[in-house]
């Protein structure tokens, strides 16, 4: 963007926009060449597809119980066996993806919004606003998120929405720091001065000129946040302080079957494998995006 000089608002915007477009298409073509990232994209598409159309795809209902088939191994009727209530494991895995992915995505969304808002405010205004916000982030980071979440959910009952909300609220700090750092350096650049000189408002400067330049960093962070939040959700559920046990998530499936591990170890293996695959896919994508936006990083 260095070429854009203070030639006035219109030109500046045009130039930026065209460059941005080419920037995106370059990134996309780099991304496409990133083999792992494409594999990740493929995997996550499959997971999303299965989750979206779970009722059509799953061979059995989410809660279809058969007490006479408790914790049985794989068979022709139940490809991955049955769980502690005689429910079809495969169907539960498919339905479980819905909540797990939704929690990851929802929390990542909150992470991103809060992180960007705080980071932008701190980075753009600098000075005492920045100091206060950064000290606040230090303070929040001093409390281990998992401790805070566990204590919170021992007081507040955990619904899916609660879990999304609190996971998001406890994981925005790193993103805020990244955004702030980028903004601190960007705002000294000429095109910001130029925009300011022609009287653009703060909101306009940030949204039109600054944020587009950190989008790459934000997207990469958001994918990582999604993976992180999915692991956190599963951990909370596993420890018994997550989404209510009647809701099938991969973490809850592990918990629900915990007293059957000796008889049916597959019940402990399957949800974990699926979870690892999903997170792997997201991390691959994140890696691909990082390389695509910033080829020097590797």
């Amino acid at each position: 963007m260095e070429n854009d000089q203070a030639h006035g608002k219109l030109e500046l915007n045009l130039a930026q926009r065209s460059q941005r477009r080419s920037h995106w298409s370059i990134a996309w073509s780099r991304f496409k060449r990133h083999r792992l990232a494409m594999v990740g994209l493929g995997m996550i598409s499959v997971f999303t597809f299965l989750a979206l159309f779970a009722p059509l795809i799953a061979p059995y209902g989410m809660d279809e119980q058969d007490l006479f088939k408790i914790a049985e191994g794989p068979s022709a009727e139940n490809w991955l066996g049955t769980d502690e209530l005689g429910r079809d494991v495969l169907s539960r895995l498919i339905y479980g993806g819905r909540i797990s992915l939704a929690v990851g995505l929802g929390a990542a969304l909150i992470t991103t919004v809060v992180g960007v808002v705080v980071g932008t405010t701190a980075g753009y205004f600098g000075g005492w606003v920045d100091s206060i916000l950064m000290r606040f982030i230090d303070l929040v980071l001093a409390f281990p998120a998992i401790f805070m979440l566990l204590i919170l959910f021992s007081i507040v009952s955990a619904s899916v929405w609660n879990v999304i909300l609190f996971l998001g609220l406890f994981s925005w700090m790193w993103l805020a720091r990244v955004v702030r750092g980028e903004l601190l350096s960007l705002k000294e650049r000429e095109f910001v001065e130029a925009a300011r000189s022609i009287g653009a408002s703060n909101v306009r400067i940030v949204s039109q000129h600054l944020l587009p330049n950190v989008v790459a960093a934000i997207i990469v962070s958001a994918t990582l946040a999604m993976a992180f939040n999915m692991i956190a959700e599963a951990t909370l559920s596993f420890l018994g302080f997550g989404v209510p046990p009647s809701v099938p998530t991969w973490g809850n499936m592990l918990t629900g079957a915990s007293s059957f591990y000796l008889r049916a170890p597959l019940l402990a293996v399957m949800p974990g494998v699926v979870l690892v695959l999903a997170i792997l896919a997201i991390n691959f994508i994140g890696d691909g995006l990082r390389d695509a936006f910033d080829p020097q990083s590797r």
């Binding site: 502690e84 009647s246 915990s258």
Partner: peptide, 25 residues
């Protein structure tokens, strides 16, 4: 887990006679 399983079974059964059941652990 045993209680949880029992309650899920009961909730399922009550739904069959026309109850709308909300299970809350």
């Amino acid at each position: 887990s045993q209680t949880e399983r029992m309650l899920q079974v009961i909730a399922n059964s009550w739904e069959q006679i026309g109850f709308d059941v909300d299970l809350n652990l």
